[in-house]
C-alpha cells in the first residue's frame, strides 16, 4: 500500500522579487515498509520535498497524498492532527524540547494524541528500550550526547505509531559511530515493525543503508533506483 504519494508537485519560494523554484514537478510514491534515501546536491530540494510530504508546508501546485488522503485540502489544524498521528519527524539538529526529559520528549506526541497514562508509560518505556536509552529516561537533552539525543528523537517520531517517519539528514551532526548507531536503530525498527522511513542525506555511509535511493537535482527527480539495495 502507498503511504505517501506526490503528484506533479512544484514549490516556488518567493522572497521579494526573487523566485526560487525548489521543486519543479516531482512525482514520487512511497510504499509501506520502505527505507528510502533522498539524495542530491545541496539546494536540490530534499528538505523542501520532505516538508511537503510531512505536511509542514503546502506545495505551490500538485497534490500530496498521505495514506490515500489528499492533504493539500486540509486546514492548519487538520494537518497538525495528521502530523500527530500519521507522521514522525527526525531533524538534523537535535530537535528535542530542552526543558523536557528524554522520557517526556517521547511522551509529548502521546499526550497531544490523548493516550491514557498507562498507555503512555508502556509505550515510552518500550520505545526508550528499543533505542537503547532506558537508563537515560530522566536525563534532559543537555545531559545527553548528540547520538543519544537523535535516538530520543527517533523514539519520539515513533511514539504514535505513524505510518511514515521523515528524517532530514539525521546523522549530519553526528560522528561516524553515533551516526551508525542511529541508522542501525532506524533500520532495525524498519525491519521489525515495518514502519516506513524516508531520509534525506549527503552521507555515503548513510546511503548504503537504504533499500531505495531517490536522487534529486535542481528540483526534479533524476534517478529513482529501487535496486540500489545494500
Amino acid at each position: 500500500m502507498e503511504v505517501a504519494k506526490i503528484e506533479n508537485v512544484t514549490k516556488t519560494f518567493k522572497i521579494g522579487e526573487v523566485e526560487t523554484r525548489a521543486l519543479r514537478g516531482v512525482d514520487l510514491s512511497i510504499e509501506n515498509g520502505e527505507f528510502t534515501a533522498l539524495v542530491g546536491p545541496s539546494g536540490s530540494g530534499k528538505t523542501t520535498l520532505l516538508q511537503l510530504i510531512g505536511c509542514l508546508d503546502q506545495p505551490t501546485s500538485g497534490k500530496v497524498f498521505i495514506n490515500g488522503k489528499d492533504v493539500t485540502k486540509l486546514n492548519r489544524n487538520q494537518r497538525a492532527d495528521l502530523r500527530k498521528s500519521a507522521l514522525g519527524f527526525v531533524f538534523q539538529f537535535f530537535a528535542l524540547i530542552p526543558t523536557l526529559t528524554a522520557y517526556e520528549n517521547v511522551e509529548m506526541p502521546l499526550l497531544l494524541d490523548h493516550h491514557s497514562a498507562t498507555e503512555r508509560r508502556e509505550r515510552v518505556n518500550q520505545l526508550l528500550v528499543s533505542v537503547g536509552l532506558a537508563d537515560r529516561a530522566h536525563h534532559r537533552p543537555d545531559q545527553l550526547s548528540g547520538g543519544e539525543q537523535q535516538r530520543v528523537a527517533v523514539a519520539r517520531a515513533l511514539a504514535t505509531n505513524p505510518s511514515l517517519i521523515l528524517a532530514d539528514e539525521p546523522t549530519a551532526n553526528l560522528d561516524t559511530e553515533n551516526g551508525r548507531q542511529v541508522m542501525e536503530i532506524m533500520q532495525k525498527l524498519n525491519n521489525e515493525t515495518g514502519v516506513t522511513y524516508v531520509f534525506a542525506t549527503h552521507d555515503p555511509r548513510v546511503i548504503k543503508y537504504a533499500k531505495r535511493v531517490v536522487t534529486l537535482r535542481d528540483g526534479v527527480i533524476v534517478e529513482n533506483n529501487g535496486a540500489n539495495k545494500k
Binding site: G54, L56, R76, N77, A80, D81, L82, R83, K84, S85, G88, F89, F91, F93, A95, L96, I97, P98, M108, P109, L112, D113, R156, T160
Partner: peptide, 13 residues
C-alpha cells in the same frame, strides 16, 4: 524553533 518542533509533532495553535 522549539515552537516549530512542537507544531511539527502535531501541537495545534
Amino acid at each position: 524553533r522549539e515552537i516549530g518542533i512542537l507544531a511539527a509533532i502535531g501541537m495545534k495553535g
